[in-house]
């Protein structure tokens, strides 16, 4: 009886020792991985910061103005002016097409164009467009992470 007890005790010690050993090394390797990941995160952050500065530098208004001046024969850009704002009524409609009859009025408080009551306003382009996976596959784009 007593011997059996010793045997169990020894087995238990071996099991616990093995478990401790493995946990110990697992912990150490996890710590190493965390450190590695943190290092990579810091590296990525640093690169993002550099890229943001580079982006800001490349898009600095004075630089863009100079580039536009140099290449405007091809770009054909014009300065934004009050006359740049248009009204639906200025569009030449095809004969027989729907023509809004109610004049458009500018909201003095908000500087918005008030729509004639019977016409829908165009919707602003959404920032993100959800494209179905099947469509992406069809045009040969792999779904990103």
């Amino acid at each position: 009886m007593k011997k059996l007890g010793y045997v169990f005790a020894v087995i238990a010690i071996v099991v616990v020792a093995v478990w401790t050993y493995r946990t110990n090394y697992e912990t150490k390797s996890t710590l190493a991985r965390i450190e590695d990941l943190r290092d990579r995160i810091a590296g990525a952050k640093e690169r993002t910061r550099v890229l943001r500065v580079e982006w800001a530098y490349l898009n600095a208004p004075e630089r863009l103005a100079e580039l536009v001046l140099r290449h405007n024969d091809k770009l054909g850009l014009v300065t934004l002016h009050p006359e740049s704002f248009a009204y639906v009524a200025m569009i030449p409609y095809a004969p027989g097409a729907y023509v809004p009859t109610v004049p458009e009025v500018v909201d003095i408080e908000e500087f918005r164009l008030l729509p004639p009551p019977d016409m829908p306003l165009p919707v602003a382009r959404p920032e993100h467009i959800e494209i179905e996976a099947a469509v992406l596959e069809a045009i040969g784009v792999e779904a990103g992470q």
Partner: peptide, 27 residues
């Protein structure tokens, strides 16, 4: 003002008057 007001998103207070069919539009 002519440069900055449009940049700040301000629309001029003008309203178009639709002329006779096919005619020009004035503000």
């Amino acid at each position: 003002i002519a440069r900055i007001a449009p940049i700040l998103g301000m629309r001029p207070f003008t309203s178009p008057i639709v002329g006779p069919a096919g005619g020009g539009v004035t503000t």
